[in-house]
Simulated assay, not measured.
Amino acid sequence: MYRSLFPRDMFAEMDRLHREMQQAFDPSPTIRGFGRSGFPALNVGSTAKTVEIYALAPGVDPATLEIHLDRGILTIAGERKSAEPSPGAKETLHINERFDGAFRRVLSLPDDADPDSVQAKARDGVVHVTVQRRASALPRRIAVQ
């Protein structure tokens, strides 16, 4: 009912503005704690040798993703295209909760992350980023002679 009084894009624009304001005032997330919201959703874990990041990004073309690691800050950015009905289709959109548009997630990595040993793979809407830990930071056994 109210959607007929206002342009449909106004509500989407207000939602986008709300998300951006929330991200602007939330502290930068680290591997120990993340903000409550954001796209893509992230799962982060670690082993003795790696830090594993999973970005859940359904509907995003992996070729359009930009993943950067600079000074211990990992950035995942891209854009998810709208799934709007084709022009001329006799379809009315009542609820649209799917996020579309540009996105950016920033993650602070531990000091022992090696920026030269990063791999990223995408499969079925999940981007898996593996960051190796520096060899100098790994535990090692010292032989006694």
Rank of each mutant, 00 (worst) to 15 (best):
R3T: 10
L5G: 04
P7M: 01
F11G: 08
F11A: 10
M14V: 11
L17N: 10
L17M: 10
L17W: 08
R19V: 06
E20I: 03
E20M: 12
M21K: 12
Q22L: 14
Q22Y: 14
F25Y: 10
D26C: 12
D26E: 14
P27Q: 02
S28P: 15
S28F: 13
P29C: 05
T30Y: 03
T30H: 00
T30D: 09
I31P: 08
R32L: 12
G33M: 10
F34G: 11
G35V: 06
G35M: 01
G35K: 09
G35Y: 03
S37C: 02
S37Q: 05
G38L: 02
P40R: 07
A41Q: 13
A41N: 11
L42N: 04
N43H: 15
V44A: 03
V44C: 04
S46Q: 12
S46Y: 08
A48E: 14
K49T: 14
T50K: 12
V51A: 04
V51W: 03
E52A: 11
I53V: 13
I53F: 09
Y54L: 14
Y54M: 13
L56D: 13
P58Q: 06
G59P: 04
V60T: 01
V60H: 00
P62H: 03
A63R: 13
T64N: 11
T64A: 11
T64R: 13
H68P: 00
D70P: 08
G72I: 00
I73L: 09
T75L: 00
I76T: 04
A77P: 08
E79D: 10
K81W: 06
A83T: 06
E84H: 04
E84R: 03
P85R: 07
S86Q: 09
G88Q: 06
G88P: 02
G88E: 02
A89V: 07
K90Y: 09
K90C: 04
T92F: 08
L93G: 07
H94E: 11
H94F: 09
I95T: 15
I95S: 15
I95M: 12
N96Y: 00
N96G: 01
N96H: 06
N96A: 01
E97Y: 08
R98L: 08
F99T: 01
F99G: 01
F99K: 05
D100W: 12
R104Y: 06
V106A: 05
L107R: 05
L109K: 02
L109C: 00
P110D: 02
D111A: 14
D112M: 04
D114G: 09
D116V: 09
D116R: 15
S117P: 07
S117C: 10
Q119G: 15
A120H: 03
A120M: 07
K121N: 15
K121A: 13
R123M: 11
R123Y: 12
R123T: 11
G125Q: 03
V127T: 10
V127Q: 09
V129Q: 01
V129H: 07
V131L: 01
Q132C: 10
Q132A: 15
Q132I: 03
R133D: 02
A135V: 14
A137G: 00
R140L: 08
A143S: 14
Q145G: 12
Q145Y: 12
